[in-house]
Write a protein that binds this DNA or RNA. Sequence first.
DNA 1: TGCGGTGTTCAAAGCGCTTTGGCTTTCGGG
DNA 2: CCCGAAAGCCAAAGCGCTTTGAACACCGCA
Lengths: 343, 343
Amino acid sequence: MNLRELSEKLGLSQTTVSRALNGYPEVSDATRRRVVEAAAQHNYRPSSRAKSLATGRSMAIAHVIPVPARHEMVNPVFADFIAGASDVYAQSGYDMLLSVADDGDEEAIYRDLASRRSVDGVIVHAPRVDDARLQLLLSLGLPFVVHGRFGNATEGYSWLDMNNRRAFARATRFLTDLGHRRIALVNGVADMDFAARRADGYSGALDDVGIAADPALLLHGEMTEHHGYRSAHDLLAGVDPPTAFLASSLIIAIGIRRACEEAGLTLGRDVSLVTHDDDLSYFRNGTDEAIYTALRSPVREHGTLCARMLLQLVADPGTTPMTRLLEAELRVGHTTGPAPRDR
Amino acid sequence: MNLRELSEKLGLSQTTVSRALNGYPEVSDATRRRVVEAAAQHNYRPSSRAKSLATGRSMAIAHVIPVPARHEMVNPVFADFIAGASDVYAQSGYDMLLSVADDGDEEAIYRDLASRRSVDGVIVHAPRVDDARLQLLLSLGLPFVVHGRFGNATEGYSWLDMNNRRAFARATRFLTDLGHRRIALVNGVADMDFAARRADGYSGALDDVGIAADPALLLHGEMTEHHGYRSAHDLLAGVDPPTAFLASSLIIAIGIRRACEEAGLTLGRDVSLVTHDDDLSYFRNGTDEAIYTALRSPVREHGTLCARMLLQLVADPGTTPMTRLLEAELRVGHTTGPAPRDR
DNA sequence: TGCGGTGTTCAAAGCGCTTTGGCTTTCGGG
DNA sequence: CCCGAAAGCCAAAGCGCTTTGAACACCGCA
């Protein structure tokens, strides 16, 4: 069933039917009712392709998520982020296009999206400290919102980020206040912007209380359980092991927990652990009471907010870039305690 | 830059330019070279909207993933599944559309997809035992492939599934062979098809060795860490606790592990645990050696295979439905051991 | 010289919608 | 009674592509 068929069936012109369905005023109430009814009855919906061709707007947003081919790692936070974003799209009648980009073809993907005009805007994920994408995106003229930031380039484009620096400074301070002096940070890959800011907050806070940062305690890697396990395992087996861990994600924290458990150490007593917590739907950090002491920043909400920002940008391309910095909440759970006196 | 502009710049007709770019034979080599070069230079790519309108194929596949509004649970396996599928799409020039469906508007989403003709096919996720979607999908005439199966309806449509029944029967048997007689299954939501099949395999295997299934040991719920923890916690605190657990996912297993740890029980010695393992990228069950004794079936591969099936179906709608049943591999890790003699 | 064949190119129609710019009809006010 | 405005509807153009059907030039061959 297409517009022509529907209008013939109704004995009206395509113009009138189109206007009736799109809520234009110059259609009588009686006619509009008839049209709307017939459309519902015949299950008619305008072809999205034809509609976008005619209007010039594709009513779709792309999310480009990087999946490095070398380790095929898909960051699990995307699932929840996307769920949050898609709520917004659904309400506004937008479709969501997902592009999985290997490091190699990242640039090609953005160019493609722009020149094929398949979407009205893009959400950019996983920005790096020094990222060629910023210039590319600006040159393409496609509205975009970044989840995170591009290193020092914090102006001239729209982004939403959590205050990684402050959050991790606060967590570090929380541990030093408990008497810990050897604190390890099990972080994400070093060139990821969020990881750099977290490392920054961590070493800044150590600095503030006069603790010299030990490079051996700062570990970068993919945000996997294995990275958490291996890092903690090696550190605990080495000389002068840390008494506390900071983890960049709950998945990493689980790995750390497994290593501690194996070493016969109890979290919150022998070893302390503070983790970042994206509040993933399948891994809530406790329902009423926190299990892990954690910095919480719900990524699903990030998705919702980014999507709203982008739609606003798309609706009014003249808008000056919007930025939004969210603070994480520190929730004290059962995985932290005073530093052991001696070991 | 559009086709008209490009062809004017080249002094050729749109027809010729289009044919040159699409590899039609009736264009001289010299002309084709000129056209291809100019297109690359001006960064021209045909508008996907116009192209699909003209060809009638939208060159896009939708994935409809259910996210029940009541608990907002996003199954983390989707991320890896989708990564696998999108490889295939990228190679064939397809886009991927993601629709997040609440229980309520599931039907509306499929109807919408079909009548707006925004995609050429659909991948259906999370089928239930008794699912109205099957009839709906068949009536819509949109090619589709189901990841899983719809209960007893295993014919007349294309699906890819793992052999849940056999896998869980095997795991159960593995545990009874170790002397366990009280085995709990911490499963997914009861009306999910995969959960039903797993429960089936489990109770079938118990039957075979003459153990009466205790309904108190079969627990259904969302596939969250919390579900694993709570289930194990309650069972271990109750009378006649199980000596072994079967978990329907690694996330659930982590919850079970936490409960055991809290109860002072060591996995593999005091309590045994076999889990299903989707081989998620961020949570590999060990690199060379398995951590958890597990039934492994890589969901990323499922994604790749489903996508290939669907593209084939789209290319040739006359094809008879394809089905594919994959066997899971049992890998023995450190979480299982003989049943304790007495407790 | 004429003719069919071949290789190369083009004009124009059509995909299913939106939207511009009329065209009628109705109605109230002078 | 006439006129202008307003309400309601429509034909046709246009969005950017593909594809049909035809044109044209050139060839070898009879």
